[in-house]
């Protein structure tokens, strides 16, 4: 088979705002997908020079090494407060608080609820993978009933430690937020939907509309103890029925 003509074009390439380095994430981790589509959105909106991200404490603590924009650390759970401080100083910048389920729904519940309730003009990307990843697989507020983790070795027992928390529905009781959507990244269709939601969340900020919240059901193969492809199926089969996907608010 003789070589085809040499000229071709890329119909899919790495986003410029995604730093060209290997990540520390495990194979099949949803963070990598969300980082990529976030970088794509930053490129498409042309806001690389105006974006400031706030990283959580958790697997994505090194977020600012991967997205090529100004970045700030935040103490565990406090990203919404740090983002509030940044956005109050730079009203014209696009500020993003990127958080995991321990960060947002355990230690940082108060900061998450109150930033949303104040209608702070930043955008939260909330990665829900139903477990604590960085610390090696402990129960998260979003751990499913009966799910086995390092701290629920016999399966999560709601009679003992309560039920998984649904962040979108929780925040949907608040008046101020302008956009609340739950997405997933377990297949191509849902990755594209997540990208659309993130783009909307950032556009809302650029247009000065208010606070946007995007929850992303994501895979954590290593700590779930199943391979990446099975993990994607687990999100669909077990998490999605409990965490209904879709838009809760779009003002």
């Amino acid at each position: 088979m003789e070589a085809k003509t040499a000229d071709f074009k890329y119909v899919y390439d790495r986003p410029k705002s995604l730093v060209d380095v290997p990540t520390h994430y495990c194979p099949g981790c949803g963070h990598g997908i969300v980082h990529k589509i976030l970088a794509e959105v930053i490129d498409e909106l042309g806001i690389r020079d105006d974006t400031i991200i706030v990283a959580p404490v958790g697997c994505s603590v090194l977020l600012y090494n991967y997205i090529d924009v100004d970045g700030s650390e935040a103490a565990h759970g406090r990203a919404p407060a740090v983002a509030t401080g940044i956005k109050r100083v730079h009203k014209d910048k696009v500020v993003i608080s990127y958080q995991g389920d321990g960060d947002l729904l355990a230690i940082g519940t108060a900061e998450a609820v109150h930033a949303a309730n104040r209608g702070e003009h930043f955008t939260t990307i909330f990665i829900n993978n139903a477990i604590y990843g960085m610390t090696g697989g402990q129960m998260a507020p979003t751990t499913m009933e009966n799910q086995i983790t390092k701290t629920t070795p016999y399966g999560r027992d709601p009679a003992d430690v309560g039920f998984p928390i649904r962040a979108c529905e929780l925040l949907n009781t608040l008046e101020a937020p302008v956009f609340i959507e739950r997405c997933a990244v377990y297949d191509v269709k849902h990755v594209l939907k997540t990208k659309r939601a993130i783009k909307k969340g950032l556009q809302n900020q650029i247009e000065g509309k208010g606070y946007s919240f995007i929850e992303v059901l994501s895979m954590c193969p290593t700590n779930w103890g199943i391979n990446p492809v099975k993990s994607a199926e687990w999100v669909h089969d077990v998490m999605e029925p409990y965490y209904k996907l879709g838009n809760f608010r779009d003002i």
Binding site: I52, V54, S72, A74, A75, R78, A81, V82, A83, T84, G85, I86, K87, R88, V89, H90, A110, E111, V113, H114, R118
Partner: peptide
């Protein structure tokens, strides 16, 4: 801004100072 706690307040200070 009246924060939801002193703890949130000092982290808002972190952000504003970082900015």
């Amino acid at each position: 801004l009246q924060a939801e706690s002193e703890l949130a307040a000092i982290n808002m200070v972190f952000g504003a100072s970082a900015a």
